[in-house]
């Protein structure tokens, strides 16, 4: 009897955890026909909505990686005319790869047109599952490897480009000539962003000191906060960094009151309206639209997309509440133009 009660409690815990990551953003309007060959979609009248499923490692409200994808999908949905045109289902918080793989397979077998595996850790799962569903488009990132499969798209962001712009702006704003970078783990776009940032700073003034810390975790907010405070104590007057745990860094900047912040992945201005200068924003919506178009045209995969400044996948969003001098803003915009034109190359 007691044992049963514990089991009930554990199950309750699991249930509540599961509720916390609801699998549907939009209530499933009608029972989807199980057999809906994707290739027929373009020839038939578009009464059936186009269906996209996405699997994400963190929450859709993480102010960073997962939120950037979710916002893009919603933007595309609005543009296409709402739920009747584009149905979106998502699974968030899938930090365990086996769970994510199960979700990917589920969505594929439910007849979704496109299944997006939003995390570089999901690559092996996509490679395995895509073989079994030749009529479904799979997209995964951040990476450039399509495994040579006709139904797999890969995508990544040239985070170093926005990092470079942020670096140029930061170098012109620092008074203490010391800048702090609070990173999570030294991999992927977290690393390339920082590499670009360092190059941008150096292009303005190589004497400026850029200190880097890594906490070893994407989620340890407490340690991220302390890392930011350490940078500030060591003299940094500008901070930047990536991952969902940088909310801690922004909090530390806000506590201090005069330390500026540069964001990436998502527009982070709302977290500290007077201190965020600019954010590099990932805009996946262009890529999503291209994937939809390709799919409808019968091209289910085989290409790699890279978000860049030049294809509008990356945008530098200046915070309107921060009074950036025209001169500095102009320097930033020139750097953007140079990168687009190819006169400046940033190495990841």
């Amino acid at each position: 009897m007691f044992k049963r009660l514990i089991v009930v409690l554990v199950l309750l815990g699991v249930l509540v955890s599961a509720c916390a990551t609801p699998p549907t953003a939009v209530p499933a309007t009608e029972a989807a026909p199980t057999e809906a060959p994707a290739t027929e979609a373009p020839t038939v009248e578009p009464v059936e909505p186009f269906r996209i499923a996405v699997i994400m490692p963190s929450a859709i409200t993480d102010m960073a990686f997962s939120q950037s994808m979710y916002s893009a999908l919603i933007a595309v949905q609005t543009e296409m005319g709402g739920e009747s045109a584009l149905e979106i289902k998502y699974s968030e918080g899938m930090f365990k790869v086996p769970d994510a793989a199960a979700a990917i397979r589920d969505y594929a077998s439910q007849g979704f047109n496109v299944v997006i595996a939003h995390g570089s850790q999901y690559g092996a799962s996509v490679q395995e599952i895509a073989v079994d569903f030749p009529n479904v488009t799979f997209a995964w990132g951040t990476d450039v490897n399509t495994f040579g499969m006709p139904n797999v798209f890969a995508y990544t962001a040239a985070a170093e480009q926005g990092g470079y712009i942020n670096g140029v702006l930061a170098a012109m704003l620092t008074k203490t000539k010391t800048i702090g970078v609070t990173g999570p783990v030294e991999v992927g776009d977290a690393k390339t962003y920082v590499d670009g940032f360092v190059q941008g700073v150096a292009s303005v003034d190589p004497a400026i000191k850029v200190s880097k810390t890594w906490t070893g975790s994407f989620s340890d907010v407490a340690l991220m906060t302390e890392a930011a405070k350490t940078h500030i104590a060591a003299g940094a007057d500008i901070l930047t960094g990536s991952s969902q745990s940088v909310v801690g860094s922004i909090g530390a900047a806000k506590d201090n009151g005069s330390v500026l912040w540069f964001g990436t992945q998502q527009n982070q201005s709302s977290l500290a309206p007077t201190l965020v200068v600019a954010s590099q924003v990932y805009d996946w919506s262009g890529m999503i639209k291209e994937i939809i178009a390709n799919n409808k045209a019968g091209t289910l995969g085989g290409q790699a997309y890279v978000l860049q400044l030049k294809n509008d996948g990356l945008k530098i969003v200046f915070n309107p509440d921060y009074a950036l001098s025209a001169e500095i803003k102009a320097a930033g915009e020139k750097a953007i133009a140079d990168i687009i034109a190819g006169t400046i190359t940033v190495n990841p």
Binding site: V10, G13, V16, S17, A20, V247, G251, L271
Partner: peptide
């Protein structure tokens, strides 16, 4: 058994705090 009930309590706290955060606050605020 204390070990199991403790883990159950942990999962309950983790799940419930996450659920309430999403439904009542939604996004990161300070």
């Amino acid at each position: 058994e204390q070990g199991i009930s403790g883990i159950g309590l942990y999962m309950f706290g983790l799940g419930l705090s996450s659920l309430l955060f999403k439904t009542t606050i939604g996004t990161v605020k300070t």
